[in-house]
Design a protein around this nucleic acid. Structure first.
Length: 312
DNA sequence: AGCGGTCAAGTTGAT
DNA sequence: ATCAACTTGACCGCT
């Protein structure tokens, strides 16, 4: 397997998140309510079609990245829709076209490997490993295990989650997070990363957990600028880098209405090149671009950084 | 064919 | 107390 770290170490690999603004590549979904009106056989037939279409859309996404110099793609966490839903959830093997679906996802992995495109997943906000509710933790673990299966097919090397809730006592909540990490299988554990958020857990909060549990920190500089912790960007960058045994993955976005606006945590359509930390210019990084204009934002940022930063 | 309400799930903080 | 925000529009029933 071609490791992400095999690109020259001074390069920045920009990443696209999940979907496209203009390029006509679309991922499909289904609602549980509409599926529940069907018998099980029909449910699985419909889900199987959507999964196959999504595998094709993922391949198209990777082709787009390869042909536009985008070095990384975040796979939609719902690429197998409703996979762990309590009533309409399913195992891939239950799909009537299971073999074709798995084959198609593995082909995505082969394509990504061949073209040196790094992939990852970002399970959604409902994955909370430190919840005081054991049922929430159990569902979170199940979700991560399902995501790890997709990661294994596609070669994705990150399953990135936030620290979870603070519950009014952050040290206690961080202890709960450590215990949550212990519940995960090796398939999840080897890919799991923790990301600082803009509400509760800063890099300074998470770094001790990352160190103690050998879990990389996905440093989101936008969140850090919204929720500061006394660490500078240079310092946080250095500390986050030290948690990685492979090419680090960081997140970048710009505020919708400026840093002085009422809600600086909201994402702009594009990234202001001035928000790209100078400390990142030396490269050896994957930088996922979280911007509503999607591929247009990645391409615009790449253009703006040309000359200042070596891009993959 | 087009419109608009709704969509599995958790947590936080602004209104 | 409600609701938007978070990686984000897409689905689906109705007319």
């Amino acid at each position: 397997m071609k490791k992400p770290s095999s690109i020259p170490s001074n390069r920045v690999r920009l990443g696209l998140c999940c979907q496209f603004a203009e390029e006509p590549i679309r991922f499909r979904h289904a609602t549980a309510a509409s599926l529940e009106r069907l018998d099980r056989t029909s449910q699985l037939a419909r889900l199987g079609e959507i999964c196959a279409d999504n595998a094709a859309a993922l391949h198209a996404s990777l082709e787009y990245c390869a042909s536009h110099g985008i070095g990384s793609f975040r796979i939609l966490s719902q690429v197998l829709p409703l996979r762990t839903h309590p009533t309409v959830g399913y195992l891939p093997d239950e799909l009537p076209n299971a073999a074709a679906v798995v084959r198609a996802f593995k082909a995505c992995g082969a394509f990504a490997r061949k073209h040196g495109i790094r992939t990852g997943l970002h399970p959604d906000q409902f994955v909370v490993l430190n919840s005081p509710d054991p049922l929430v933790v159990r569902r979170s673990v199940a979700d991560l295990e399902a995501q790890a299966e997709i990661a294994a097919w596609t070669g994705a090397d990150t399953l990135n989650v936030h620290g979870g809730g603070g519950y009014g006592d952050k040290p206690k909540a961080l202890d709960a997070l450590r215990r949550g990490l212990d519940l995960l299988s090796p398939a999840v554990r080897t890919r799991l990363t923790l990301e600082n958020d803009d509400r509760t857990f800063t890099p300074r909060d998470l770094l001790p957990v990352c160190k103690a549990c050998a879990t990389p920190l996905v440093y989101d500089v936008h969140h850090h600028r919204v929720l500061a912790d006394g660490l500078g960007v240079a310092e946080a960058t250095q500390l986050a880098r030290s948690t990685w045994d492979r090419e680090p993955l960081f997140h970048l976005s710009s505020p919708l209405e400026g840093w002085k606006g009422p809600r600086p945590e909201r994402h702009h359509d594009y990234v202001d090149p001035d928000d790209f930390p100078s400390e990142w210019a030396s490269g050896g990084l994957t930088v996922e671009v979280e911007a509503k204009a999607k591929e247009l934002a990645v391409l615009r940022l790449a253009k703006a950084l040309r000359g200042r930063v070596t891009l993959s």
